[in-house]
Design a protein around this nucleic acid. Structure first.
Length: 638
DNA sequence: TAAACCACGTTGGAGTGTTT
DNA sequence: AAACACTCCAACGTGGTTTA
């Protein structure tokens, strides 16, 4: 990767072109199917690099490939660096903002002009502009046209990987919408921030990263446009552009502009308890608490100040930072339509923190979210689906692989709660359906981890009636309510190879795999195999691999150790049992047998070794044993 | 949300060395 | 040359976390 050579064909560099776009044009010039192909075939490095360039990494190598100064590419490429977003040296955002990177957009007029005015081969003429990727900028400043974000015919979002920015992969030419939007003062402000860092937006905006400033402008601008309920109004490109400008107007006069806006909002407040939601509208309050507003502490403070001036006193999470979002059991029980006692017992079982200090018992926002997930009809997202089932995120993905769980629609993020529960009910059907004493029983997801059986395997065994459900814990969510007796699992469900967590299995006194046995005995895999084949240690067939019983391992160790004492220093003419067998080429079965009959006796135990490797034996005593026939000649030297 | 990352144990094949 | 003993290592499957 450090030795990339310039590509044979060049493309004419364009100013303000992002790195990935340059790579696309290089791919076009070399008649590759995609930029990734170009990288793969001509440069010979993996596909991964293409996505890195999209994120603004590996730009030096790209510059060397293209024969263009690295600084030019650097200046016009969006770069993701440790959670922050940069363009050149300009900080765009100090946190990751998914909306600012998702798609590429294009101005069709600019692309047409490129065909007429730029040089080089036709295919390479249209170039993307860096500012098209800045989400809050919705129009082309040159043509006053809305940037196109999707193909008009097939509705595919414009992709950054499209080689030709003028056409979608189906071949449709991207059409201008005809909607004319004059770049307003807001967009101009953002552009000037991007291009020369000029500060004309007032002390508040100019200090913010560009994208964060844009969010603040859009939020307050929309409040200025639509009043108290701006969240419910659709945000069209034209509206966003206007909102940016209005937001600039409000925020450039810091903090008076914000005060004026809040005054205006308050004027429309109806009658009722004058909390912040009523005074300023729910939209603004929600935005401040959960959305972009969380990054805007000064704005937050201004609203607090304004609210304090109004002279009203209500409890609102905006004002009362302590216990934000804590919700009482009673409220939650009413909301979820379930019994309060049941809620309490589930909370106890899950060891959720209950807030009991003042007032009625309350749950933290996280716990409340968990409860909502647990008892709602529609579950949003995989993580929530996993919570509902009481299993880990990864265990859920295994259920996906086995088609045991699926969203409501293909590729949807919504899951039907009752359908998820059906999976649990199918398991519980197999039990006596009576809550039992929980002693000695383990929730199903933990059984999966402890016994190293995958969850789908266990579910299949339960459904087929091979594995008995020993009890039900009604207070636990999802599959955690299914209780299993661990000893029942071993004889019924074969162990999966390659699962970690051996030490846990060991502590349970069940079988261990070869690796754990090696560790215990302090020997290599090969030696273990050998003493198994010679019948010194009994191995049990287990899903195609060997497994060993802990008691057998201990018995073997006890035989060999006899009553040897621990020694600290190395002994002359004495080595560990493993080394001796290796160097004297004696058969393991002979040595072990000799130890068993006390024909040879250990000198002691090395304190810093394990198992058979710790047993210290004098070489001479072993040399008296017969050597393996095939090694007779060699071993005579020792 | 998906993919990348890390951690870990198991497996099986490549490679090395020895004897028959 | 074939058989055997042994070591080393990459690939794989799993669980969990982080990142884009």
């Amino acid at each position: 990767m450090n030795t990339v050579q310039p590509l044979p064909l060049r493309v004419r560099p364009a100013s303000n072109e992002p790195g990935y776009a340059l790579l696309n044009r290089l791919a076009l010039r070399h008649e590759a199917n995609s930029a990734a192909d170009l990288i793969e075939q001509i440069v010979g490095v993996g596909y991964k690099w293409f996505t890195e360039v999209q994120r603004g990494q590996g730009l030096e190598q790209l510059a060397r490939l293209a024969g263009v100064p690295a600084a030019d590419i650097f200046r016009s490429t969006m770069r993701f660096d440790k959670g922050s977003i940069f363009m050149g040296d300009t900080l765009l955002a100090d946190r990751f903002m998914v909306n600012s990177i998702r798609y590429g957009r294009v101005c069709p007029f600019c692309l047409v002009e490129d065909m007429d005015y730029r040089g080089g081969p036709d295919v390479c003429r249209p170039t993307r502009r860096a500012i098209w990727d800045i989400a809050p900028i919705v129009s082309c400043p040159k043509h006053n046209a809305v940037l196109i974000s999707a193909c008009d015919s097939c509705h595919q979002p414009v992709g950054k990987a499209w080689l030709d920015p003028r056409r979608c992969p189906e071949g449709h030419l991207l059409q201008a919408t005809g909607e004319i939007v004059t770049s307003g003062a807001g967009e101009q402000y953002l552009l000037s921030r991007l291009e020369c860092g000029a500060a004309i937006g007032g002390e508040f905006l100019d200090r913010l990263p560009v994208l964060t400033a844009a969010r603040a402008m859009i939020g307050l601008g929309r409040a200025r446009m639509h009043g108290r309920d701006w969240e419910s109004v659709d945000a069209s490109p034209a509206e966003l552009s206007t909102a940016l400008s209005l937001g600039l107007e409000v925020l450039s006069d810091w903090p008076k502009g914000v005060f004026n806006l809040l005054d205006d909002l308050r004027r429309d407040a109806g009658k009722g308890r004058p909390g912040p939601n009523r005074l300023y509208g729910k939209s603004l309050m929600r935005w401040l608490q959960y959305g972009a507003g969380t990054m805007l502490k000064p704005l937050h403070d201004i609203v607090l100040q304004h609210y304090a001036q109004s002279g009203t006193r209500t409890r609102h999470s905006l004002l009362d930072q302590k216990n934000i979002g804590w919700i009482s059991l009673r409220t939650l029980a009413e909301e979820l339509q379930i019994d309060r006692e049941r809620l309490r017992s589930v909370a106890d079982d899950m060891q959720m923190a209950l807030h009991l200090d003042e007032g009625p018992p309350k749950l933290s926002p996280e716990a409340a979210h968990y409860m909502r997930v647990l008892f709602s009809d529609v579950v949003r997202g995989r993580k929530a689906a996993a919570e509902r089932l009481g299993i880990s995120f990864l265990q859920l993905s295994h259920l996906f692989k086995h088609d045991l769980v699926s969203p409501i629609w293909r590729n949807s993020i919504y899951y039907d709660g009752p359908t998820l529960d059906k999976l649990v009910l199918q398991c519980l059907e197999k039990s006596s359906r009576r809550p039992l004493n929980k002693e000695g029983l383990t929730p199903l997801p933990e059984v999966s981890y402890l016994t190293k059986r995958s969850l789908p395997t266990l579910l299949a065994a339960i459904k087929a009636g091979h594995l008995a459900v020993a009890g039900i814990n009604e207070a636990a969510p999802g599959l955690r309510s299914v209780l299993i007796r661990i000893e029942d699992v071993r004889p019924v469900v074969p162990r999966l190879p390659g699962l970690r967590g051996t030490s846990v299995a060991e502590s349970l006194g069940v079988f261990v795999g070869p690796q754990a046995a090696q560790l215990r005995l302090g020997i290599s895999a090969g030696v273990l195999l050998r003493i198994t084949q010679k019948g010194i240690l009994r191995a049990f067939p287990w899903n195609g691999t060997r497994a060993y019983r802990n008691q057998d391992l201990n018995a073997l160790l006890n035989v060999c150790r006899s009553d040897a004492v621990v020694i600290q220093s190395p002994q002359p003419d004495a080595l560990s049992l493993v080394e001796i067998v290796k160097r004297t080429r004696r058969a393991w079965e002979h040595v072990i047998e000799a130890l068993r009959t006390q024909e040879i006796v250990p000198i002691g135990l090395f304190s810093d070794r394990f198992g058979l490797d710790a047993i210290c034996i004098s070489i001479d005593s072993v040399m008296r044993l017969p050597a393996l026939p095939q090694y007779r000649r060699k071993s005579s030297k020792l």
